[in-house]
Amino acid sequence: MKLKRKDILGLQDMSTEEIRLILDTAISHKGIISRPVKKVPILKGKSVCTLFYENSTRTRTSFEYAAKIMSADTTSISVAGSAITKGESFKDTLLTLEALGVDLFVIRHAAGGASHFAAKTVKSHVINAGDGMHEHPTQGLLDMLTILENKGKIEGLKVLIVGDIMHSRVARSNLWGLSKMGAEVRLCGPSTLLPAEVEKLPVKVFENLDEAIEGVDVVNVLRIQLERMDRGFFPSNREYAELFGVNKARLLRAKSDVTIMHPGPMNRGVEITADVADADFSVITDQVTNGLAVRMALLYLLLGGGGHVASA
């Protein structure tokens, strides 16, 4: 099986076969992470560049570790300290780095569609690591891998995504991926934080968390993006926690074997209580490990295992 595409930009345009191939490859690569020598030579001589116009710890580090485990060389460019502060455009930055021999770009940008633009600009591969309020496909894939590991399947499960749906690229990638794989996706959040035209998405929308949580297999709790909350989407963190915070009492309405996920970083006491975050049915640290496996799989499929050959 091959992945017949140059870039990974989002899950909305990805087929179920492609998603399955990526998840299967990630499962087979995961064992490498716990080996005494965490390194395989397959991507020796390939260059991976992480180009981040927004802050990030886990996504960027995860991509860099994934590339290093596969023996690729990595370079990391952030806005501060680069020629971007001298006014170099996004396009010129990409072309300069490509001329230096970058085989694959990992891009995070505040503007939706930035990775699509990059994919058209360069011949190298592009993986979208988050573009504005659009998609974050590797997070969607790692969430699906975590669900698959815990439940043995995705099809037929009820998955609730709760929180700030509007600003969340994690929610968008999750809902596209999960609905393609046959899960029932529920969204819940304050009406001010639901996206426009939410009724056109393949989801069920709830404004009451107690109703939304009834009988679900998985709750994916989104981060309240405090940096975007200056425009009065809800009165106070305390009120948000009261109405939309996930706590143990509310979880009694879910299935008894419910699994809790959170893409991090968490605001404990706001969207999730500390006892839920630390409970044994919470798989938040597994998500981080699975993120590494998914990124290793994507680097392998794009750069290694006979994937789309860009310039061979």
Binding site: S28, G31, I42, G305, A312
Partner: peptide, 18 residues
């Protein structure tokens, strides 16, 4: 598969874990 020297010229096989 991850140790081969000819990955660029062979198509990827569906791999099962070691």
């Amino acid at each position: 598969a991850l140790y081969r020297d000819d990955y660029a010229t062979r198509s990827a096989r569906t791999i099962s874990a070691t």
